[in-house]
Design a binder for these strands. Structure first.
Length: 450
RNA sequence: UCCUGAGUAGCUCAGCUGGUUAGAGCAUCUGACUGUUAAUCAGAGGGUCGGGGGUUCAAGUCCCUCCUCAGGAGCCA
């Protein structure tokens, strides 16, 4: 026997049911009355459609029920689908029966303007509004595109642990938790080191999971809990790594363009900007980028003894901050990869450039339109002695890294990988102004509710 | 953590140099309308002006302090 749910009707499929009856289940997004007419904007998670109740067509009880409906009341509506030029979706439903699941009272989010703080307090309800709904559908597409791309290109998903005995990179601050009688455990800030071990077992792998950073970041592009995909590939050098990063980004953007036209329209996204995202992307070495900053008189802002000072020309060896990255990206309509950063500002596991000992084989991909850093990656140090030297230099607990050093003791090979922030990617593609809008329940420095 | 800014009705805000009973739009409730889609029209209810302390004949308004929130910086995906 066929499962009952398989016969359910959904608003996104309404064009298939023109001139026939459907049973819709959903919530009242809005309602207006005009005498003998009641217009119900019905939302079922797949879309929204206007259901028209005309007093002359239904029983008095059904009409009374229609009038009783409030914003976000839950209903089952039986009606016939009719093409209508006046409807934004092209179709309307003429109501025949209404069954009320629940009448909602005093729904806090009205169709008018609200402030960010208020909406964040009601995030669990805010997700129902059309803009948030559209963003979440794009997010789901981005995640699906990521997995599709890797799964169909020889990669195996191989997830890394969330609970770890120590810091992966040693730099960022970590969330600490008790771990039975074994002291402290930490929530992972990156799955990369474990992904390297996985890559030595399966060749090309990717981890997909949450990452946790206890940094006191308070900006529109930071979360304390975010999702990250991290591919790691044996025998890939930095160039292979950058090529893969470009191919992945192009695939994701194309997939969203193909799948989410309606959502991008609701978000008023300039689609031509996304259609321009084709290979090759721009690439600049750190040296070239520094020269550009110097030529264009972009200073380094730095705090010296508590005072902020501007340093011109931009000194070689300093990491780029948002002002530098934004200045560089203003000239580009496609992402730009900056590679070969000074070793001092980058993580211990990155491989030195054999052509220049001062830099490491690292790369960051910056997105245009103030999308910021969406990818960070590198070729990994594969020499045991050099890696150990770096671990000691950073004062990392050597004993915690023995398993990681084993990867350089037993069949060490050149290998590379990168991390892509899912929310950063969704923020750029949707054009959302704040990263908190692109994850269902954002975790930020001053917010853990709802 | 540092810098800057904000807190007045359920929501978004106005409120002058301190001065009578603190206002508007939306939302809610009642009524009218067969084409609304941020409907319109008529009417009604709705306030510890973030908390505490102070100055003053008089404080939403000035001062002190605490709390909450937002934006930016650094760090990073």
């Amino acid at each position: 026997m066929e499962s009952r749910y398989k016969s359910f009707h959904y608003i996104e499929d309404l064009s298939k049911y023109a001139n026939s009856d459907v049973i819709l289940r959903g919530w009242v997004a809005n309602k207006t009355e005009k005498g003998k007419l009641v217009f119900i904007q019905l939302r079922d998670g797949t879309g929204t459609v206007q259901c028209v109740t005309f007093k002359g067509n239904v029983s008095e009880e059904v009409f009374a029920n229609a009038k009783k409906l409030t914003q976000e009341s839950a209903v089952k509506i039986i009606g016939s689908v009719r093409a209508d030029e006046r409807a934004p979706s092209g179709f309307e439903v003429d109501v025949k029966e209404i069954e009320i699941y629940h009448i909602s009272t005093d729904y806090p989010i009205t169709p008018k303007d609200h402030g960010d703080a208020f909406l964040m307090e009601h995030r669990h309800l805010w997700l129902r509004s059309s803009r948030q709904h559209a963003i979440m559908r794009v997010r789901a597409s981005v995640i699906k595109a990521i997995k599709d791309y890797f799964d169909s290109n020889g990669f195996k998903q191989m997830d890394s642990p969330m609970l770890t005995p120590s810091a992966c990179e040693g730099t960022s601050t970590l969330f600490e938790t008790k771990y039975f009688d074994m002291g402290s455990a930490y929530l992972s800030q990156s799955g990369q080191l474990y992904a390297e071990a996985s890559a030595m077992a399966l060749g090309r792998v990717y981890t997909f999971g949450p990452a946790f950073r206890a940094e006191l970041s308070k900006t529109r592009k930071h979360l304390t809990e975010f999702w990250m995909v991290e591919p790691e590939m044996a025998f890939f050098d930095l160039n292979d790594d950058m090529d893969l990063a470009e191919d992945l980004v192009v695939y994701i953007v194309e997939y969203v363009l193909k799948t989410n036209r309606k959502e991008l329209e609701i978000l008023e996204r300039d689609i031509s900007k996304l259609e321009a995202i084709k290979r090759p992307f721009y690439r600049l070495s750190y040296d070239e980028a520094v020269k550009w900053l110097q030529d264009n008189k972009i200073p380094l802002k730095k705090k010296v003894d508590g005072k902020e000072v501007e340093i011109l020309p931009f000194p070689w060896g300093e990491d780029f901050g948002s002002p530098q990255e934004e200045a560089i990206m203003e000239q580009f309509d496609k992402p730009c990869i900056i590679h070969r950063y000074p070793a001092e500002v980058k993580a211990f596991y990155m491989k030195r450039d054999p052509d220049n000992e001062k830099v490491v084989l690292a790369m960051d991909m910056l997105a245009p339109e103030k999308g910021g850093e969406i990818i960070g990656g590198s070729q990994r140090e594969d020499n045991e002695d050099l890696l150990l030297e770096r671990i000691r230099h950073e004062n990392l607990p050597e004993e915690d890294y023995q398993w990681y050093l084993d990867l350089r003791r037993f069949g060490s090979v050149p290998h590379s990988g990168f991390g892509m922030g899912v929310e950063r990617m969704v923020k750029w593609i949707t054009g959302a102004s704040h990263i908190r809008e692109v994850i269902p329940f954002p975790r930020m420095i001053y917010r853990i509710y709802p």
